[in-house]
Each structure stands twice: as C-alpha cells, then as structure tokens.
Design a protein around this nucleic acid. Structure first.
Length: 556
DNA sequence: ACGGCCGAGT
C-alpha cells in the first residue's frame, strides 16, 4: 500500500477538532493510525519529531509490519533527534529483528547529528537476549562501556538478563554486583539467571535478600520452583504473594499439570483472571501429557467457541492427544483444521506432530506423504512412522524404514530401539529383532533397558523360542519386571509349554499376587491341554487371594 | 516523547 492510499482513507472531519497527540493516543489499530497520519500530513506535522516519535512508537507496537513506520521515519528530512532513532530500534527489537536492529543502530552511530544514548541500548540488548545472541550482545556491551552508559540501571538490568539467559551466570553476576543502582527489575533478571543455570537455591537466596519485590519477581521465583518440581515451595509463595496475575496462575497450572494433578491444574485455570492463550495451552498440554486426551480435545473445542485463536503449541498438544486416542475421524478433522489454518507448519514441531498423529491413527498414506515432504526428517518423525507402520501391521516396512533412517545418517537412541523391537515382536520378525538388539549393544553402545529385554522375551517367546527367552531373562543384568515374565508366560500359553509356564507363573504369583492376568494365563495353559483339575486349582487360588478377574478376559 | 524483569517445550 502506498503512503497516499493509506492516507486517503481519512474522511472523519470531527477528528480535526482534537489535538494530534490526543488523537494518536486514542489509536488502537493501524487503520486508525493511518487516519491520524493523514491529519499529521495535512497540518504539516511530518517534520515534528515529537509527533513522529509518538507515531512510530505506536505503530511498531500495533503491528509487526515495520515498513509503514520505517517509511514515515525516512520522510523526516532532518532526523537529528535521538528519540526517533531509539524508537525505531526498539521497534525492530520488539519484533525479533536483531539484524535490522543492529544495522539501524550502526547507521545511527555513523550519523553526524545524532548518537546512541542510554535509551538506545536496553532494547538492543534485549533483542540479543531474545535470540541468545551472546556474541552480538558482548559486542554491544563493549559499546555500552565506550559510550559511557554502563552505569544506567536499565542498561545494567538488560545486560544481567542477557548473560543470564545465555547461561553466562558468572558474567551476569559480575554485571549485577558492579551496578551502581539496582531495582526490582535488576534483581529479578538475576534471579531468572540463577533459575536458568539450575541454581534454585541461589535464586531463592536473592529473592529473600532483595529489598523490594514486584509481581514479576514473585512470578519468576514461582516458575523457578515449578521448573524444579518443588510444587510445595511454589504454592507457598503463590499463597504469600500480595497480588497475582495471569502469569502467577499459569505457573501453578503448569506446576500441577507437570505433577500429574490435573484436578488442581483445572482449579487454578478456573480461578485465573484474564485467561489467555498460555493458560489454555498449559491446561491442554497437561491433559494431553497426563493420559487424558479426551479432556484435551474438549478444551480445544471450548477454546474455539470462546474465540481464542490457537497457536502452534496448542495444536501440537491437540495432535498428541489425538495420537493417544487413535481415532481416525478425529485425526482427519484436526489435520484439515491445521492444514487450512494460518499456522506456520514449519514452526514448533507441527509437521512432526501431524506425521505422528496420522501414523498412529492409521492414516498411513497421509503420514507418508507428510513425512516424505518434510524438509528435515529427524529421529522423532522416523520413530512416529515406524511406530505407525508397526501398529497397523506393516512391520516389514517399519524394518526397512529403520534401516533407511540409519542410512540417512541418524543415530538411533534407546526409544528408537524400543519402537523397532516392539515392531519386530508384534510381527514375529525374530531374525531382524535379534539383529537390532545386537546392533544396539555392539554398534551403538547402548545398554538395553528392562523394556528392551521385555521386547526380546516377547519376540522370542511368540516365535516359540521359549528356552532362549527364558535364558535371556535370567541373563539380564538387572532384575526383570513383571511385564517381562508376563510376556514369557503368554508365550508359554501360546506354545502350550506347561512346565515352563508353571515355573514362571509361580514367580509371577510372588511378584504380583494381585494380577489376575497371570492366573488366567496359567489356567488357560491347563485348559488348552485339558487339565481341568489344575484349572480349578488356579481358580480357587485366585478367589482365596481375592483376585478379581478382569471383565472380558477369556477363560478358555 | 525513547529503554530493562515474570508464562507455553528439552
């Protein structure tokens, strides 16, 4: 849009009765700003530094599109006013345009009539902090000293924040200790630095020492405790703090969700003032991660009806919930919703979640298409595909995909091996399973976990290699868990091995006497060989111990 | 008139 066409929308004569600064202050959108801009031009205010500064400041805060305010800046013929420059630098920083921010800053340095001052640096440093650009940040720190603005409390606080965020905790502390003046913001930035560095004790020490706290200080300390799963301390501070905002509540929602206490998370969500996207996100992802996918989906729909627009984080949570439910229809709806939304699919693992959801819900064609189109396929997406193929009976393809993954230069981890071994055991691919198990140890130097052994026992057992499975179980460096023995008992049933079955059942009755499944399996083994007397012995033992059979379990 | 701190994930 040209400058002229932006201005031509101005038609409201009553606007001209008010002063330009008050008109500017009333603007809440870019179009209304355009109207006031027309008025500024009409009254010859384009060279009024005061007005233009206010204008640029407002404009950059209302829209991420900076072409408009930049144009307005360049129409100032003598921009020898530091306010104008500082405001535009802030605008670039605000919208994560570090490189533009820095290059504009250098133009300012080269400019004859104007130079950086203590107002220039905080937003510049903040831009570095946002992008964890430590090198650029250090260079700017040097210029801060050169321009003699290092004693300013805003500048100092921004540097403490920068070094803290970049995990340079010693630098952060040095700047903090050498500051001439410290306020709540400086202290809070330092506390966040310690939390980032994993030192919640030092963070709390500073929190207790600081002379004056504000809302952000309390919230920083609460989120620090939440991050270290110290929910008791977080709750104590939450109860003590003089006033709370949506951030305080969201921290508690997040904390309870991480602790698996979704009832409390929900309570804090309901109590929270000014609930926003992050509040919804914390609760929805909490449900998705705590095995309550239906609740996650319900909340997403409620969110829609309240006209809260979801972002990448939320749809990823939603898709993870769908993956757990495995409902193809729901997955299709979510897929089309996400695909036609204005969300950036390249951001925040959206593509990986889409692949995962489609694979696990049985839409392998769609999953494959998305997977093949991914710009860079990582371990997680490969595993999603392998798992999807395995769930839907195509372990043969899963095996070749695993091999392709290695050919593409990725290094499988313990999760990847769990996935492929599970696939092999599902489809009885004994040879391949053993090959993967061996390569896991010999090639990738991984130590098989109990779960990996359980997969192998299951695989060998199902294939009738009961003796090998039994030997593997006994050779395990760690004590096998009940599920591993249970897998072998199931295999004994499948292959009617009474002798081994009895031995394993006896062990299982000791490890988990209340698990009905083990009794059922043993009884099934007896029944299959017509040993009805033994069947009734097992059933009696079960009722003696008060074990309830699981409804729907077959007895024969 | 222009500036810094607290929230979603590993």
């Amino acid at each position: 849009m040209t400058l002229l066409s932006r201005c031509s929308t101005f038609t409201e004569p009553s606007l001209s009765s008010r002063s330009l600064p008050s008109l500017l202050a009333a603007c809440k959108t870019v179009p209304s700003l355009e109207q006031v801009h027309a008025q500024i031009i009409r009254k010859g205010g384009e060279q009024d530094h005061f007005l233009i500064t206010r204008f640029i400041s407002l404009c950059t805060s209302l829209s991420p599109d900076l072409s408009y305010p930049v144009t307005v800046f360049h129409r100032v013929s003598q921009p020898n006013n530091v306010y104008l420059w500082n405001t535009l630098i802030k605008g670039y920083s605000q919208h994560a345009r570090l490189s533009l921010s820095v290059s504009f800053f250098h133009r300012m340095r080269l400019s004859v009539n104007v130079g950086p001052d203590k107002y220039t640096f905080p937003s510049l440093v903040k831009a570095c902090s946002n992008e964890l650009a430590l090198r650029e940040g250090k260079a700017i720190h040097a210029l801060i000293v050169k321009y003699g603005t290092d004693h300013d409390v805003f500048v100092g606080s921004s540097l403490v924040d920068l070094y803290g965020k970049c995990r340079e905790i010693k630098c952060a502390r040095k700047v903090f200790d050498e500051m001439y003046e410290r306020n709540e913001v400086s202290w809070t930035a330092m506390i966040v630095g310690y939390v980032n560095a994993g030192d919640v004790v030092e963070a709390k020490k500073l929190f207790d020492e600081m002379p004056k706290r504000n809302l952000a200080s309390w919230n920083a300390m609460i989120t620090g405790f939440v991050r270290f799963r110290d929910l008791k301390s977080a709750r104590k501070l939450f109860d003590e703090m003089p006033e709370r905002n949506v951030v305080s509540f969201t921290a508690m929602i997040d904390g309870y969700a991480k602790a698996g206490d979704m009832a409390s998370a929900r309570f804090f969500f309901e109590q929270s003032p000014d609930r926003d996207l992050v509040s919804w996100s914390a609760l929805i992802s909490g449900y998705a991660q705590n095995g309550q996918p239906n609740e996650a989906v319900k909340l997403f729909i409620e969110m829609q009806s309240r006209k809260v627009k979801p972002d990448e984080f939320i749809v990823v949570s939603l898709m993870s919930a769908c993956s757990q439910i495995g409902n193809l229809e729901l997955a299709k709806w979510v897929d089309s919703y996400v695909s036609q939304s204005s969300l950036d699919l390249r951001r925040g693992h959206v593509l990986a979640a889409l692949v995962d959801m489609n694979a696990k819900c049985g839409n392998m064609d769609r999953a494959t298409m998305l997977f093949e189109e991914m710009p860079n396929r990582d371990l997680i997406s490969f595993c999603s595909m392998i798992q999807g193929l395995s769930i839907h009976g195509r372990s043969d393809v899963a095996v070749s995909l695993f091999d392709r993954m290695i050919n593409e230069g990725l290094t499988p981890d313990d999760v990847a091996f769990t996935v492929i071994l599970t696939a092999c055991s599902r489809s009885g691919l004994v040879k391949e399973g053993c090959r993967f198990f061996d390569s896991m140890i010999d090639v990738y130097s991984l130590v098989p976990s109990i779960d990996h052994y359980a997969c192998m026992v299951d695989l060998l057992g199902r294939a009738g290699k009961l003796k090998e499975a039994y030997e593997l179980l006994n050779s395990m460096p760690v004590e096998p868990h009940a599920a591993a023995w249970g897998a072998l008992l199931g295999a004994c049933k499948l292959h009617c091995d009474i002798e081994l079955g009895e031995e394993i059942a006896a062990r299982l009755f000791e490890i988990e006497p209340q698990n009905a499944g083990n009794y059922v399996l043993l009884s099934d083994i007896y029944a299959a060989t017509n040993r009805w007397l033994d069947v009734s012995v097992v059933r009696n033992k079960m009722s003696e111990r008060g074990v309830r059979k699981i409804p729907g379990c077959s007895w024969i």
